[in-house]
């Protein structure tokens, strides 16, 4: 039992995590005929809190409450994993990534998130505006415009062999590569 707990606390390899994430698709379908998707929850929040007579937000969001409960679960899952199942070892990042990011001025590689960026101090600066406000805006705007995110398109969409989801997933990757290699170096130079 003790040993099992030790294994669970270590970071999970991709061949454990990936299949578990994949199993979310049939689980949601079979327990309640629900299509897997997470970004829709953001739309439901808009529909519930500020529909503002916009047709896109005028629907019976109460019928989609399951999706909000699901993301609330993801929040608690994150809390449980961090409080009770935290990795006892130091965070392992590939040497080349550490080298690349050090060149941008990132110094702390000890946690899951760079402490140099994810702090309240940074939040209230121009840098924070780009990384949190602008970045978050693009995530919310882009996923809704694309009709889904990594879960709805890349996982649910590809699992059901949808060509539009393959196109969307490729565009997610192209956008990510462009930001990482073409734009991010300039953003880091600003500060």
């Amino acid at each position: 039992m003790e040993q099992l707990f030790e294994i669970i606390r270590k970071p999970w390899p991709w061949y454990v995590a990936g299949p578990l994430i994949g199993l979310t698709v049939p689980t949601l379908l079979l327990i309640g005929n629900k299509s897997f998707g997470i970004s829709s929850s953001l739309r439901h929040v808009c529909a519930a809190c500020l529909p503002a007579n916009i047709p896109f937000f005028k629907y019976n969001w109460k019928n989609e409450i399951w999706n909000l409960v699901f993301v609330l679960g993801v929040f608690f899952g994150g809390m449980i994993a961090t409080l009770f199942l935290a990795n006892p070892d130091t965070f392992q990042l590939s040497e080349s990534t550490i080298a690349d990011l050090s060149a941008f001025g990132i110094t702390d590689f000890s946690g899951l998130m760079p402490a140099d960026l994810f702090s309240t101090e940074v939040l209230f600066s121009a840098k924070g505006f780009i990384f949190f406000v602008l970045g978050g805006f693009m995530v919310g705007f882009g996923t809704r415009y694309a009709g889904g995110c990594t879960s709805g398109h890349a996982i649910m969409g590809l699992s059901t062999l949808q060509l539009p989801s393959l196109i969307a997933t490729c565009c997610f990757m192209v956008g990510g590569f462009a930001m990482t290699h073409l734009i991010l170096p300039y953003i880091f130079k600003l500060f």
């Binding site: 602008l134 970045g135 693009m138 989801s165 565009c171 997610f172 192209v174 956008g175 462009a178 930001m179």
Partner: peptide
């Protein structure tokens, strides 16, 4: 799916 996908991709890499 193309325009939105690209915008989300940009945001994904930054956040």
């Amino acid at each position: 799916q193309v325009y939105g996908g690209l915008i989300f991709g940009l945001g994904w890499a930054i956040t």
